[in-house]
């Protein structure tokens, strides 16, 4: 099979996945037994309010038509309006998405290279002191919830030492240093967990490659150590490492939701948690679609990269 056709096939599969995700998001938010409007309003339901909500959610129409309408608007870039305050979601989310992207990108930029280096170091010296140190500390880190790390960091750096703000208020900051001060704690809290997961998976992926026959052969034919690792092992390790990175973006997304709430960070994650609390269905749907599509797209990218790295795909028989 031609490599291009393989990639096109994967892209098609990705679009399909996003579609399935959209169905799940839609169905998931509307699987309420009985009437959504009553459930949302709870005890304070008056007939007028119920009618109002039913009209705004378009509940008088059948579900599949509502789904198609919702999907159509999504594709046109219209996220709808909030159920609680009637705000235009494009504005509300647009205002905050930059902050979330900033948080995610800074975290990834720190965590990804660092964890790959840690994983490589550990895997080339299994059972050595440094491997044990890395393995045990990453194990401890993946075991504690990220909000605990956040709590500890806040109590140390914000409360006890007073060096950094406990609340990430991005409205009144300007200048790089200010930004860095505000971002420091959320990014640190996020990086720890993501890094720990990624370093551990990198270690086992690379160890797998290093114990394979081709690597033993390279050693036996006299290739110097650094060259064995860079020229012989790395091309075979790219695909697993890329997959490790993609897989860990799931932890990053979970982390973002928690950490944004914890630090009152003005991002989409906290917005979504607020949406869940107030049961603002359109808001949750929109935020979920943004997070999930990003995740699917990044996974797709990883998939394509590992395809390209595979010599059997690049050089078919």
């Amino acid at each position: 099979m031609n490599i291009l056709s393989v990639i096109v096939q994967r892209l098609g599969l990705g679009i399909l996945t996003v579609l399935i995700v959209s169905i799940l998001v839609f169905v998931g938010t509307e699987i309420l037994p009985g009437d959504v409007a009553y459930a949302i309003l709870g005890q304070g339901a008056t007939p007028e309010l119920v009618a109002n909500i039913q009209e705004r959610l378009g509940l008088d129409e059948p579900a599949h038509l509502r789904y198609l309408a919702w999907l159509g608007e999504l594709l046109r870039g219209d996220l709808g309006t909030s159920l609680t305050n009637g705000a235009v979601l494009n504005d509300v989310i647009g205002e905050r998405i930059g902050n979330t992207v900033l948080l995610a990108v800074v975290t990834a930029a720190i965590a990804v290279p660092l964890s790959i280096v840690l994983g490589l170091v550990a895997s080339t010296r299994p059972d050595s002191a440094i491997d044990r140190l890395i393995s045990t500390s990453t194990l401890a880190l993946i075991s504690v919830p990220d909000f605990l790390i956040a709590v500890l960091l806040v109590s140390l750096f914000a409360v006890q030492l007073g060096w950094l703000p406990a609340i990430a208020n991005l409205n009144r900051v300007d200048g790089f240093l200010e930004y860095a001060r505000v971002l420091a704690l959320p990014v640190a809290a996020l990086s720890f967990t993501v890094m720990a997961h990624m370093a551990r998976m990198t270690r086992s992926a690379v160890l797998n490659v290093l114990t394979s026959s081709p690597i033993e052969m390279a050693i036996l034919k006299g290739v110097p150590k650094w060259r064995v690792i860079l020229v012989h092992a790395l091309p075979n390790a790219i695909a697993p490492i890329v997959n490790v990175i993609a897989l860990n973006l799931a932890y990053l997304i979970t982390g973002i939701v928690v950490i944004e709430s914890m630090f009152n960070f003005p991002g989409v994650g906290r917005l979504m948690v607020e949406g869940v609390t107030t049961r603002d269905i359109p808001l949750v749907q929109a935020a979920a679609m943004i997070f999930c599509s990003t995740y699917v797209v990044l996974n797709l990218a990883a998939d394509i990269i590992s395809l390209i790295a595979n010599p059997r795909v690049r050089h078919p028989k």
Binding site: P214, M217, P311
Partner: peptide, 24 residues
């Protein structure tokens, strides 16, 4: 050891299919 391997002494493994690096 690296200096002698491949130059003074060289090795042919049992399964070449498993020992060749598929990426190169």
């Amino acid at each position: 050891r690296q200096q002698i391997r491949g130059v003074d002494i060289s090795y042919v493994a049992q399964s070449a299919a498993a020992s060749f690096n598929s990426a190169l």
